[in-house]
Design a protein around this nucleic acid. Structure first.
Length: 863
RNA sequence: GCCCCUGUGGCGGAAUUGGCAGACGCGAUAGAUUCAAAAUCUAUUGUCCUUAGGACGUCCCCGUUCGAGUCGGGGCAGGGGCACCA
């Protein structure tokens, strides 16, 4: 018997699918088959696929192949998220042009993906750095600009004062530039923005309709958009009226009810009044400069120690004539949220409390939990943010929080010093990047005409090839000729916009472009109207907020421009977990690769080269820095793609992290061998394909048929519910049953049932192990590809057992089981349960108080 | 700091969503086969108690219920995101 040769077999079937164009999709004008668009998040072409990709694409391929088998017209494309920082880093480190580096990486990764045997329509492939793609993106940018959805304004960036470069957050390490080591500064720059806030309500409300999205992703997005109802209150600053300076501070608060607990106001270091004060007072300027050294990330700002600067100014309390509130500048007040100024109520906000304790400010509780006396209640180290009623608040005393909020807002509106307001945390999307390897923004700066869009007929604005990465900063700024153009409006010399677009823009519409990848316009309406939205989108949960929110916005944006007819790009979303591996370090703390260590039978782990014991660390996400990576190419080379895919799908639930183990991949490998043995050993003895159902089956054959049809139900259900690990377990069971099934030569019923079971098994493993399935299909005497075979349908009669075993509990504890016919009347089940020897014994002479009978499930006897 | 998620045998996990906890896989142990090994096959495998059998058992504490891995409250631990990594 020939051993299954994964390598040659897989290559053979990959060629066969390509030859037959099995996976090339086309619109189906009469819609005889329902369409199904399944998409995995496209990869960044780093050069090699990693296990995360293998997992992601294995899952997507299961869905794609399964839906094909269920009769859907499936679109399953692939492309490359090809712009971005790593190519520029490579250019700097390896002296390779980003384009060359990127396209070589793509060639390499395409080969790797092809070796996985994915049911992809490669005819639609493109990279976002293809001129054809970014040319269309420039067209979309112009349209968004026309519709006032793209605009320009000042905003803050991380600035490296040594390299004169804008830094990405990941390039800021402990507040310093990653290359220069110089402390990073926050700086203002004029930049391009997309008006995502124009859709903030819609983006929030539409989350409710995304029923096939994980609840947690919808929640995270809702929190990100951060709609909150509150009030804008105006405070008068004492003693500044005369100087012609701004004499009012507007704060936004979600807790106007706590106004009587206010003990200070705080301005953001970037607030306009702060700037005025800094001009007057060098100490303020110093403090602001110190704050700006923190960088732009919210995480860093919120984690930093709360620092404030007392400006010496005082504001009048709007309801208390004799109270003045000190005005601070505080490093934790964000300019981008609300009005850039707050009133601090330390008793009911943790940040305010930390701040008040540090600067010795009053902490007065004004909301008292309902079960505590207001005199006894005090706030020490933890602010009280729970429910309660108002106290120490004059006319608010005794009110609920909601009543008090409304009361204050009403009085503020009546007194003309405030308004009710709904505020969003969401900020407009800054899309400008001062980098080379991105989509050029098709705009021109003219001294006379201002910012002028490039004419559509002048697109594409292509990136120049002859750039150097020696000098810090944006190479496009340094280019001799590229930036010099005639103004599209007046024709006078002008300069090109040198900012390029955030790569999140590229990934905000690629899914739509896949519908018509070669169209002359960004999107062909016939094609997008047919295919969109994506029915099932699959990718890492790390994209739960930004990428998915941007894509949802962008789709609405281009809908406004008439390019697409849907507002939601992804009707179904699945977020998969990461691939992890244990980590190894030597005694010096250096990371070791899995290939450098050996696990002995007694459990010891040693270095392969010198036998020195290794410290085994926790399993963590595979990453180059921890060296705990397994290269998919090595795995596919050694075991084949089917085995790798099978392992990715077994054991771990898809949404959870997967632990890579040698044992796991070996197990998957043995299973491919077992399937092949079952096929080879039985194929010759089976009846020909397509024989009519025999009239008689013996118990043995009937049991196999039952199991087969139950497996159909369970495997199908598992795939539908994204529980591939459960489907895999059921397939193991079916294979186990087949492995031990024996039928006599003249047992036609048994032989028929055996073929039915084997064919069912082969079709159901085909989405997971497509190559092995094709080879098995051929060996079973079938003509045509299993890729085109229909999914099996379970016979309802074979799904249910006649006799069932139900559990019998005594006071909730399992005491016995009862074999009984299905669907018996309650009385009979009760009587049968009470008559059980074990139950009779256990009950003894105690009173049976109650008997709970759950049909076909359980009986609980309560004594 | 803020938001979100996860926690079940030696390990990955299952549990029809409140009804027999541990399906299936890995590992381990014993046996068969083999000159030997690999591969394969068979059996056992949550913990504890000496056995028939029983007690305990889903991160910890408290609660709801005839009944809780599942529901509620409070903790602990690990992970993801935080707007210029993708």
């Amino acid at each position: 018997m020939a051993r299954y040769n994964a390598k040659t077999t897989e290559a053979k079937w990959q060629a066969a699918w390509a030859e037959a164009k099995t996976f090339e999709a086309a619109e189906d004008p009469d819609r005889s088959r329902p369409k199904y668009y399944v998409l995995e998040m496209f990869p960044y072409p780093s050069g090699r696929i990693h296990m995360g990709h293998v997992r992601n694409y294995a899952m997507g391929d299961v869905v794609a192949r399964y839906k094909r088998a269920r009769g859907f017209n499936v679109l399953h494309p692939m492309g490359w998220d090809a712009f971005g920082l790593p190519a520029e880093n490579a250019a700097l480190e390896k002296k390779v042009h980003p384009a060359k580096w990127t396209y070589e990486n793509i060639d390499n990764m395409r080969d790797q993906l092809r070796a996985m045997g994915l049911s992809l329509d490669w005819s639609r492939e493109f990279a976002t750095c293809d001129v054809e793609y970014y040319r269309q993106q420039q067209k979309l940018f112009l349209d968004l600009h026309k519709n006032d959805l793209a605009y320009r304004r000042e905003s803050w960036v991380n600035w490296d004062p040594v390299e004169h470069t804008v830094l990405a957050n990941e390039q800021v390490i402990d507040g310093c530039g990653w290359r220069s080591g110089a402390p990073v500064e926050r700086r203002q720059l004029s930049q391009w923005f997309f008006r995502i806030t124009a859709f903030q309500d819609e983006l929030l409300n539409a989350l409710g309709d995304l029923e096939r999205w994980p609840e947690k992703v919808r929640l995270m997005q809702a929190n990100w958009i951060g709609r909150s109802e509150g009030a804008r209150l105006r405070f008068t600053v004492k003693g500044r009226e005369a100087e012609g300076q701004s004499s009012e501070i507007e704060v936004f608060t979600t807790r106007p009810d706590t106004i009587f607990g206010a003990s200070f106001l705080a301005l953001s270091p970037d607030h306009p009044m702060t700037a005025q004060l800094a001009a007057e007072n060098p100490a303020v300027a110093d403090f602001v400069a110190e704050c700006r050294r923190l960088g732009t990330s919210e995480e860093v700002i919120e984690k930093a120690e709360k620092l404030g600067f007392d400006t010496g100014l005082r504001a009048a309390h709007p309801f208390l004539d004799d109270v003045e509130l000190p005005i601070y500048i505080a490093n934790f007040v964000l300019i981008d949220y609300g009005t850039g100024a707050i009133f601090g109520c330390p008793a009911h906000d943790q940040r305010d409390l930390d701040f008040a304790r540090k600067y010795g400010l009053v902490v007065l509780p004004v909301v008292i939990p309902d079960d505590i006396d207001s005199i006894e209640f005090s706030v020490d180290k933890e602010a009280y943010v729970g429910p309660g009623s108002l106290a120490n608040s004059q006319f608010l005393d005794g009110m609920s929080i909601e009543q008090a909020k409304s009361e204050i807002a009403g009085r503020a509106e009546a007194g003309n010093f405030g308004t009710r307001e709904i505020m969003y945390r969401l900020r407009d999307w800054g899309v400008s990047r001062q980098r080379y390897w991105g989509c050029p923004i098709p705009m021109v700066h003219c001294e006379g005409c201002g910012v002028v869009p490039v004419a559509e007929t002048d697109l594409p604005i292509t990136l120049p090839d002859d750039v150097t990465f020696e000098r810090p900063g944006n190479p496009l700024d340094d280019h001799d000729t590229w930036g010099k153009v005639a103004c599209p409006s007046c024709g006078k010399p002008a300069r090109r916009e040198t900012d390029t677009l955030d790569t999140f823009v590229d990934s905000s519409w690629y899914f739509a472009r896949f519908c018509s990848p070669r169209a002359e316009q960004p999107l062909d309406r016939t094609a997008v109207d047919y295919w969109m939205p994506v029915d099932q989108y699959i990718g890492g949960v790390e994209h739960a907020i930004l990428h998915l929110l941007y894509a949802r916005f962008f789709t609405r944006g281009i809908e406004t421009c008439g390019h697409i007819g849907v507002s939601e790009p992804f009707s179904g979303l699945f977020t998969q977990g990461m691939v992890c591996h244990e980590t190894y370090r030597d005694d010096a703390g250096n990371w070791l690769e899995p290939t450098d260590v050996d696990r002995k039978a007694d459990g010891r782990v040693i270095r392969t080269d010198n036998g020195v014991p290794v410290n085994v660390g926790r399993s963590e996400k595979m990453s180059k820095s921890r060296k705990n990576v397994i290269d998919p190419e090595d795995i596919i080379e050694r075991y084949g793609a089917d085995t790798a895919r099978w392992f990715m799908l077994s054991d771990s639930p898809p949404e959870r992290d997967l632990e890579w183990t040698d044992g796991g991949i070996e197990g998957a490998w043995r299973f491919t061998g077992r399937i092949w043995r079952i096929i080879e050993e039985s194929a010759g003895a089976l009846p020909a394909p397509g024989q009519p159902v025999p009239a008689q089956f013996d118990d043995n054959a009937l049991a196999l048929r039952r199991l087969t049809h139950q497996a159909i139900g369970a495997v199908t259900d598992g795939i539908e519910r994204f529980q591939f690990n459960v489907s895999v377990a059921r397939l193991y069971e079916l294979a186990n049953a087949l492995g031990s099934f024996k039928a006599g030569d003249d047992d036609t019923g048994g032989r028929w049932a055996q073929r039915e079971a084997i064919e069912t098994l082969v079709v159901m493993i085909s989405p997971m192990m497509p190559h092995l399935a094709e080879e098995a299909w051929l060996t079973l005497g079938q003509s045509g590809l299993v890729a085109n075979a229909p999914w099996p349908v379970a016979e309802p009669a074979l799904l249910v057992e006649d006799t069932i075993t139900i559990a019998v509990q005594l006071n909730g504890k399992m005491r016995a089981t009862l074999e009984i016919a299905r669907d018996q009347p309650e009385d009979e089940v009760r009587a049968a349960a009470l008559a059980l020897e074990k139950i009779e014994q256990a009950v003894g002479d105690k009173d049976v108080r109650r008997v709970i009978v759950v049909p076909n499930r359980i009986v609980n006897v309560v004594v």
